[in-house]
Design a protein around this nucleic acid. Sequence first.
DNA 1: ATCAGTCGTGAATGCTTAAA
DNA 2: TTTAAGCATTCACGACTGAT
Length: 301
Amino acid sequence: MMLIRPMLAVSGELPIASQEAAWAAEFKWDGVRAVAYLLGGEVRLLSRNDREVTGAYPELLADLAGARNMVLDGEVVALDSSGAPDFGRLQSRMHVRSPSRSLLATVPVLYHAFDVLHLDGRSTLRMPYERRRALLEELALDRGRVRVPPSFPGSAGVVMDVAREHGLEGVVCKRLDSPYLPGRRSELWVKVKNTLMLDVLVGGWKPGEGRRSGTIGSLLVGVPDAGGLRYVGHVGTGFTEHMLRDLSARMAPLVRPASPFAGVAPEPAHWVEPRLAGEVEYAGWTRDGVLRHPTWRGLKE
DNA sequence: ATCAGTCGTGAATGCTTAAA
DNA sequence: TTTAAGCATTCACGACTGAT
């Protein structure tokens, strides 16, 4: 059996209203991608890069083992107490090759199967999404820890609203006529993320390495609160070369010897007076109160 | 303590293909 | 033939955790 690497989505915006009918929307699950190979009663799970992850998720194997040979694309997801996917919890599972009984009990996972790539010895990759989806639903895979999450044709905007209400990461829009393009990041699939914005003050910077040596690696940012400037994380992406040059020039006259952050200084860095205000896009907060997946969006005057 | 791997972002590079 | 565009790859950066 040939390995099939998962098809990837580009990030972008919702389809415009007049185009909605050509797309289906699915919820975006905040977990890890896994392709399931169900062949001759054996089940294997491989990561996005074809790494073996079967052993990490033993509780999924029995529920996946079916009579028919097939290859499924899906996402391994851990839920928080409210039932929403929680990537932070999954992180304690995803590197553990043979999880202990207690870990299995405290962080159970589900497999959300959202595509079928091969069935009964025949490839389904060239079928349009709509047909693969119908096939997937006919297979009636929902059993135990395996779910087939819903797909909503023609209503991406509404699905996004629901995702936002439930605190989900966003939606993935897929062209109804799209074939499955293994290993490709294609505009036929578009992920639309529910992102948050935060106004921050720049309190310092760390130098870059490699190609970024001689310039800024990341900015250390904070938000003012009662106790002073509260550190909220470093931002190392989102800049163009021009922005890096501009930021360096603006920070140069603001240099100061000590950290401007209240409380514990995050780590050694170059400190500046916190006078530059900027906007950061982020996906949420980590347990330690720092930004998750922050990206720089630009200075605010 | 460091490395590597999961998720994410963007930019540069190099190869292939299409257009001028 | 030369240039432009498109695509995949690589390398930066972030948080995080297990393995070594």
